[in-house]
Design a protein around this nucleic acid. Structure first.
Length: 840
RNA sequence: GGGCGGUUAGCUCAGCUGGGAGAGCGUCGGCCUUACAAGCCGAGGGUCAUAGGUUCGAUCCCUGUACCGCCCACCA
């Protein structure tokens, strides 16, 4: 029921909604609509089919009641499933798709368009589904490649002077031919134009006409014109005032115009026609031909282009406004790449066939007077004919295309045509989140209708998210059986992990390839958060939850890791806010992941452990607890839009008197908490710890073995930082001793790590393989030399020095100096090793 | 036929205005260190599809080519 596309759409939307709400924004978004009108009707028709019925065996009212019944059930289930994802969905709004309010709006808009001359009724070749017995719009046709044939058929000239050979993929439609056409420039047919040809089998005389539409290159150069079966032929026929011969009924069965073929199915008829043509010597040949056949998007039946009387919206004037709105930036399409597609479609748009011969939908508000035949278009049911006062009125049987009513959503749901407060407050809405697959169906039409009715765009931002595909990049669909069930994912990995995964893989303009492994990875992340919170709360058990207001992060007198993590939190907060403002979901997710796991957990919590455990310095512990509490709160808030469940759970555990985290204020940027100095100092401390760990790992020294380390730090600043933070280094790198000097010589038998301008010497035991030590140094030296060579080359380039940005040059010089420094140190150690190796 | 997008580590993908090639998973090595083995600490791994061009400098900009994918049109 709930499929991936639904899940992605609702989750992305929910992330923005929660984020904006926490920021105190009073915005309205377009809810992800369960646009299941047609789909539901389909299901109901299938149900009926199992009972051996069609919808025509029921009355219209009975049928609609059944659809409602099904929709209620379906809708209710969907709502509950969305709740499990942490997304809210207002079923009362869903209901609105067919209720009285919308019905009023639909009629009102129809009438307005009609009176503005933008709706007309006319004959045109439309796409017709012979199974659903309804017109469908061009967009609803799905083309499928099929191996067909191209038949060449002789059409003899009436005067017996020759023949025309036409090529066709659909020989059965010749029953409806009313002309044969050639290109006026085509020399081959000079003299034939204007003559009559005999339509084989039917023996009807039809003219040979000239029209530039015919391509000289394709087929035989002669084209049969079947105006009732092909929109292009229809256009040609109009130009030449040709008659229309309709040869099929609504079920694609040949009608009385088909003579002996009457009553045959179109494909049966094709076989018979081909056979008869062959028998009578009219068939000149048949070649295999690969072409596309349109199918109904609902039932996959081959569609039958067929001339019929339908209602159309004259779309060009509406499209013009909708184009302008995007050009002028009144509505932003995100990612902007889709703008081109939008313009392309809008510029080449064709009139919109809005009538459907189905039963579920809004009836067209048009009545015909049985007395005088007048057409009445009205927003309220007319009681009598305004002309002849006759009472025998019948409403048009057709209903409107579902997208007609959907197009009114942004304002009809807010109460239009009444001037409600909601409408005044929330129109235009701030954001629409939807899949690009309905850019034309829905988004473009909402734009047009919104501008037409409200004289203002329906939304400021349109965020078009990607399609969800499976691991192999195939579009997920129930029929292919490759869909991953979101509910199963929730059961196995949790809603939070699933949500986070959806966000993490939603990069703009790319499809999402869903795989279980990724969700599992994020389940680990949720687990990490849970454990980090558990650890924090364990160390906060004697810390009273502060009053909701006034509690702040304390930098005054705070330790280095605290100053640093507060600094980082501040930066990450702005980063995430910006990323979400720009709908960069994957980046926001990545920022959170990196910060929480690799900064908060890996460094801050680890470094704070001694303080938090320490019973000897209770005042330090209390101060650390205050910050820990605030940091954890802030992290939960940042995370909340992505992981509503686990964050709320922890939030309430921290202080069960609190309101939901959902309504807590989102962390805001505080310039007072920026501390570049702390960042620099921590970078040095972390660098030294990492360097020591690196050496330990490379040399395969067991973690339990305590090391002797000495550090040479020429700069006073560095020395002070290391000195103050020495206990962090000792603890994290598991040291026995740490000696600090300004120009300490490399102790014998040690291995060197370089961090900035500092050298870190790790004393090794003699038992360690000397060759291994040497190999490590050599490896690093070659790496440094490679970089150094590249850098020197660059700096030796005059053009570079002359033309590059001075900041880039300065950076390069600094890099070069650093590399040279490293090179020297490594050379030195290597020299020493050679000496040891030769002496021993 | 027209338009759009993709090609980056073994896999899946980030890389937003040209100056350091990155993440997750997987792999390898070491750890049951009192939040977490769903974990911790480290390591290895890429001619950024290809051929040119612009530039001091190109994964990034331009052009051509190859392969993959999507959308639109549907010349019978």
């Amino acid at each position: 029921m709930l499929h991936m596309g639904h899940a992605l759409n609702n989750v992305l939307q929910d992330i923005i909604i929660r984020f904006k709400r926490m920021q105190g924004c009073n915005t309205l978004w377009m809810p992800g609509m369960d646009h299941a009108g047609i789909a539901t009707q389909n299901v109901v028709e299938q149900e009926l089919a199992r009972e051996g019925l069609t919808r025509h065996d029921l009355t219209r009212e009975e049928f609609i009641a059944r659809v409602w019944q099904w929709k209620e059930r379906y809708g209710g289930v969907i709502i509950n499933q969305l709740k499990r994802l942490g997304c809210s969905c207002d079923w009362s709004r869903e209901r609105f798709t067919m209720d009285e309010g919308l019905s009023r709006a639909v009629r009102e808009v129809f009438v307005r368009l009609y009176h503005d001359g933008l709706i007309y009724r006319g004959d045109y070749v439309i796409q017709w589904c012979p199974r659903c017995h309804t017109a469908i719009s061009d967009l609803e046709v799905e083309y499928k490649e099929v191996n067909g044939h191209l038949w060449n058929v002789r059409y003899p000239l009436q005067d017996g002077t020759g023949e025309l050979v036409v090529a066709t993929t659909r020989p059965e439609t010749m029953l409806g031919d009313t002309a044969v056409a050639v290109n006026p420039e085509d020399e081959r047919f000079r003299g034939m134009v204007g003559k009559q040809v005999i339509l084989p089998l039917v023996n009807r005389a039809i003219p040979d006409i000239a029209d530039p539409y015919v391509s000289m290159e394709f087929g035989t150069g002669a084209l049969k014109i079947t105006p009732a079966c092909d929109p292009n032929d229809f256009a040609v026929a109009k130009r030449h005032n040709l008659p229309l011969v309709k040869i099929m009924d609504g079920s694609a069965i040949i009608n009385e115009n088909g003579g002996p073929y009457q009553g045959q199915d179109r494909y049966v008829c094709r076989e018979n026609i081909v056979k008869d043509l062959e028998d009578q010597g009219y068939l000149l040949g048949r070649e295999p031909y690969l072409h596309n056949v349109g199918q109904c998007y609902r039932c996959k039946t081959d569609i039958e282009p067929s001339v019929s009387t339908q209602w159309f919206v004259k779309i060009t004037p509406l499209a013009k406004e909708a184009i302008a709105a995007v050009v002028e930036g009144k509505t932003r399409i995100i990612p902007p790449g889709w703008e081109a597609t939008y313009f392309e479609w809008m510029n080449n748009i064709r009139d919109w066939c809005i009538s459907r011969q189905i039963w579920w939908g809004h009836r067209i508000p048009v009545w015909y007077c049985g007395g005088c035949g007048k057409t009445i278009v009205a927003s309220v049911d007319p009681a009598a004919c305004p002309d002849c006062k006759g009472l025998k009125l019948s409403q048009d049987e057709d209903v409107l295309d579902t997208w007609f009513s959907s197009a009114l959503w942004p304002f009809s749901t807010l109460g239009w045509p009444d001037e409600t407060a909601a409408l005044k407050t929330f129109y235009p809405t701030s954001l629409l989140v939807t899949g690009f697959d309905i850019l034309f169906f829905w988004v473009a039409r909402m734009m047009m209708m919104g501008l037409y009715v409200m004289k203002e765009v329906p939304f400021r931002d349109v965020y078009l998210h990607a399609l969800v595909r499976d691991e192999n990049g195939e579009k997920m669909s129930k029929s292919k059986g490759n869909s991953i069930d979101p509910l199963e994912m929730i059961d196995r990995f949790g809603a939070d992990a699933f949500r986070f995964t959806l966000a993490a893989y939603t990069a703009q303009g790319r499809d999402v390839r869903m795989s279980e492994e990724r969700i599992e990875g994020h389940k680990h992340f949720v687990n990490k958060i849970w454990n980090a919170a558990r650890f924090s709360l364990m160390n906060l058990d004697d810390y009273p939850a502060p009053a909701a207001t006034g509690a702040k992060l304390i930098t005054e007198g705070a330790s280095l890791p605290e100053r640093w993590i507060i600094h980082r939190l501040t930066l990450v907060t702005t980063e995430i806010s910006r990323q979400l403002d720009e709908y960069r979901f994957n980046e926001a997710a990545s920022s959170l992941y990196q910060f929480i796991w690799h900064e908060f957990c890996d460094w801050y919590l680890e470094l704070m452990k001694p303080t938090l455990y320490g019973k000897d310095q209770p005042e330090k512990r209390t101060a650390a607890q205050a910050n820990l509490y605030q940091l954890l709160s802030a992290i939960l808030k940042l995370l909340h839009p992505f992981m509503p469940f686990v964050t709320e759970e922890i939030w309430q555990t921290m202080d069960d008197r609190r309101d939901s985290i959902m309504v807590s204020p989102y962390p805001a940027f505080d310039p007072a908490l920026v501390d570049e100095e702390a960042a620099r100092e921590m970078t040095l401390i972390m660098g030294i710890i990492t360097a020591i760990r690196n050496i330990r790992g490379e040399m395969e020294i067991p973690p339990a073995k305590k090391l002797h380390v000495s550090i040479s730090a020429p700069e006073d600043v560095s020395r002070r930082v290391i000195s103050t933070g020495s206990h962090y280094i000792t603890h994290q790198a598991n040291l026995e001793s740490l000696i600090l000097g300004n120009e300490t010589a490399e102790p014998k038998g040690s291995i060197t790590g370089i961090v900035g301008d500092c050298r870190v010497y790790v004393l090794l035991e003699d038992t360690i393989d000397l060759a291994k030590k040497r190999a490590k140094i050599e490896k690093e030296l070659s790496r440094v030399d490679k970089d150094l060579e590249q850098s020197s080359k660059k700096l030796a380039n005059r053009d570079f020095l002359a033309k590059a940005d001075p900041r880039v040059i300065e950076k390069e010089q600094e890099k070069s100096r650093d590399l040279l420094h490293r090179h020297r140190i490594l050379e030195e150690s290597l020299k020493k090793f050679r000496e040891i190796l030769t002496t021993s």
